[in-house]
Design a protein around this nucleic acid. Sequence first.
RNA 1: GGGGGGAUAGCGAAGUGGUCAAACGCGGCAGACUGUAAAUCUGUUCCUUCGGGUUCAAAGGUUCAAAUCCUUUUCCCCCCA
Length: 406
Amino acid sequence: MKEYKNNNKFYFEITKKIPGKLGRAGIIHTPHGDIKTPAFMTVGTRGEVKFVSMEELKEITAQAMLSNGYHLRNKADEIAQNGGLAEWSGWNGPSLTDSGGFQVMSLGSGLGKVVSMKREQEIVNTDPKERLAHVTEDGVEFFDPFTNQKDFIGPEESMQIQCKIGADIHMAYDELTSLADSYEYNVEALARTERWAKRSIEEHKKHCDDLGYHQSLYGVLQGGRWEDLRRSTAKKFAKMEFDGYGLGGAFLKESLGDILKWCCEELPEDKPRHLLGLSHPDDILIGTEMGADTFDCVAPTREARHGRIYTKRGNIKLNKFKDSDELLDEGCDCPTCQSGWTRGDLRKLWKSPNIEDKKKYYTLSSIHNLRFIIRLTEEIRASILDGNFETYKETFLENYYHSKLK
RNA sequence: GGGGGGAUAGCGAAGUGGUCAAACGCGGCAGACUGUAAAUCUGUUCCUUCGGGUUCAAAGGUUCAAAUCCUUUUCCCCCCA
């Protein structure tokens, strides 16, 4: 096996705090480079961002990539033999792997459902008989719809997989509960996630000992929407040997800020925190304010592929801009906008029966939306450093969510 | 000139006497999408004052009942001269 390039150089440095808030701008130093926070990590579940090349990611100043141990589990040995995730994927910047914990819900209680943040309709868990994933004390048994085979991942397996993949940051194995789960179930699931966290640390340590250096591990906080659960678990995790924290859970929009606050007030200030799976502008703003340093989300790319384009004045549905000669977002610095693509022309590509045209559309729109979110984090960072985060936040939200000039 | 096949909603295409305003696909329209079972999913798509009204190339006919059967006409495709 090839030697990994870097020894451990993981630490977090706070550059400036938002006065009176939990939020801060900082730098996460990793073996593959620095992440200036707040930062958005592009999601490359299988080691590549859909329809976007590594060069294009660099061009829009993407800082880090998140991949998933669940999806890469059968390639972990191959990845290790090829020098780890950075060499294997071609993404030579900072990286993070998720534990596969999200799949507990997406293949289990939330199978076939949208991970909603709204309360508009009643949220009901998928019938246990129809789920593809089932939780036990040991871990998660699941049916992989791609390989059509049964499989199992517990904390030990997740750590083994992630250590082989060798991203800069690993995630402890956790169980994400759904919005439909009761307090009682969350108590049970949270206790299990805490036990899994301990097992994750132990297994992770073994591999680091074998490797001869430390790889970073984040503990993932759960606890649903209950303050007592969130605070108690955060206190416990704060005392454990984690290098940072993942803030996990299924959130309602209106409770996101409170939940993050409960967690971050209990966590050590000097460790980085990653808000898992969220990136709509308001989520990033409230997340940063409440103490989250990094973010990841499939929304920018998925919504782009589905015809939703981000603009300063709110997101638009491309479908409504047939033959429009408007730019996607006036003044945007992304390569797509800089090349002069109009809404009408992009829509033509999207609606084209030609598959190559469609792919071109997916690339152009994904680049735009990703750059939009990355630029947002850059501007938030600048506003924190300049001491005018509040003003920036209010102005941005006003333009994005309340503009009538869409 | 002779023989055969076909014409169905914006398009493609099922249906071959009643349960047909007519499956399905595309396109259109509307909505969704947040640690990627997601180049996906959901709803809708003749008109309507929601009682009903007018449709399956056109016109006649048979029948209690026709997109479906018969006759003629128009157009399209194939084969033989």
